[in-house]
Design a protein around this nucleic acid. Structure first.
Lengths: 74, 74
DNA sequence: GCTCCATGTATAGAAAACTTAACATGGCAA
DNA sequence: TTGCCATGTTAAGTTTTCTATACATGGAGC
């Protein structure tokens, strides 16, 4: 359904860098479901800005360390 | 409709700092409608991550210079 | 073998973001 | 005054994001 997003992310790497945090644990920390974390991690769709900020905050890094927006795709 | 977002932004200031750019012009540059720009600027809802990246790119500043996420509201 | 546990898929539906179109207002210039 | 332009509002509809539930798989340990 969701169109695949242009935005890539480093969530999986960040989870492992933070004590092998599981998807379920990350989901609980940011207040969403596990399915949402999986979908975001796989780039099936891009998260809301609010969710993006929360994820970055969990890992204690700036937003740009979690999500990368490729230069002008058009 | 949209619930008022916790995220604040500096879009209006950035527009004026960039040659009095109008809402219509910004909208066209990021590929959305004028109404969407107005809604975002007024904080009626938060944009998608993709849109946020595009806005930051138009102004040539990092994402955190455009949007501010307040520390843990809960 | 069996049972957890982390990960993944699928589907239906709710909620939020975004569009389209119409109309209103105040300012400014001809 | 008339006309244009930037801003703003409203309402209805579409698309995307997110939830809830259910089920599948492979690895680790008993």
């Amino acid at each position: 359904m969701g169109k695949p997003t242009k935005i890539t992310n480093s969530i999986r790497a960040l989870r492992f860098a933070h004590g092998e945090m599981t998807q379920a644990e990350l989901a609980e920390r940011i207040g969403v479901t596990r399915q949402t974390v999986i979908a975001i991690e796989h780039g099936r769709y891009s998260p809301s800005l609010e969710m993006a900020f929360q994820i970055a905050r969990v890992f204690g890094v700036p937003l740009d360390d979690v999500f990368q927006y490729p230069a002008t795709e058009n």
